[in-house]
């Protein structure tokens, strides 16, 4: 409970996140589902699919909403994006924003755990 207060104090974004916590998967749980195409924790920088790690949250949110609404051309991302609500998209965006901007193979387990913890504590998710 105390922790939740702490997170709420992180600001309005976290609050929006918490409000829907009951009915929504966590940011990391959703972000993990992107890994087969975008790399573990979004850290794939050499393939055709864009890396998501470190992407500014606004860029992620705008892109996903545009895919979902069909205003941005897509191969499969239109179909994928239609599976997510605005709140879910935001939670993923904040989580990915905090992941290290480097190839997964060069990232240590501790770096990954730290980035995950940072993402969670700044409203990336609860």
């Amino acid at each position: 409970m105390k922790l939740r207060n702490l997170i709420l104090s992180a600001g309005f974004l976290a609050m929006a996140q918490n409000a829907s916590a009951e009915i929504m998967a966590s940011g990391s749980a959703m972000a993990w589902q992107c890994a087969p195409c975008h790399g573990t924790n979004g850290q794939e920088f050499v393939e055709a699919m864009p890396p998501l790690a470190g992407m500014p949250a606004k860029q992620f949110i705008d892109a996903m909403i545009a895919y979902r609404e069909g205003t941005r051309p897509a191969i499969i991302m239109d179909r994928v994006a239609r599976g997510f609500t605005d709140e879910e998209i935001k939670a993923m965006a904040y989580w990915f924003e905090k992941q290290p901007v480097k190839q997964w193979e060069n990232t240590s387990l501790n770096e990954a755990l730290e980035a995950d913890a940072t993402a969670r504590s700044t409203g990336g998710q609860q």
């Binding site: 409970m1 105390k2 922790l3 207060n5 702490l6 104090s9 992180a10 501790n110 770096e111 755990l113 730290e114 913890a117 940072t118 969670r120 504590s121 700044t122």
Partner: peptide, 26 residues
């Protein structure tokens, strides 16, 4: 974010909370 408020210390602190507060490296 103000991290070290007293009320934090009486809650059960998990490993994740610790990492949250201090970072995994620490």
């Amino acid at each position: 974010m103000s991290q070290l408020e007293n009320k934090q210390f009486d809650s059960k602190i998990t490993r994740r909370d610790l990492i949250k507060l201090f970072g995994a490296t620490a």
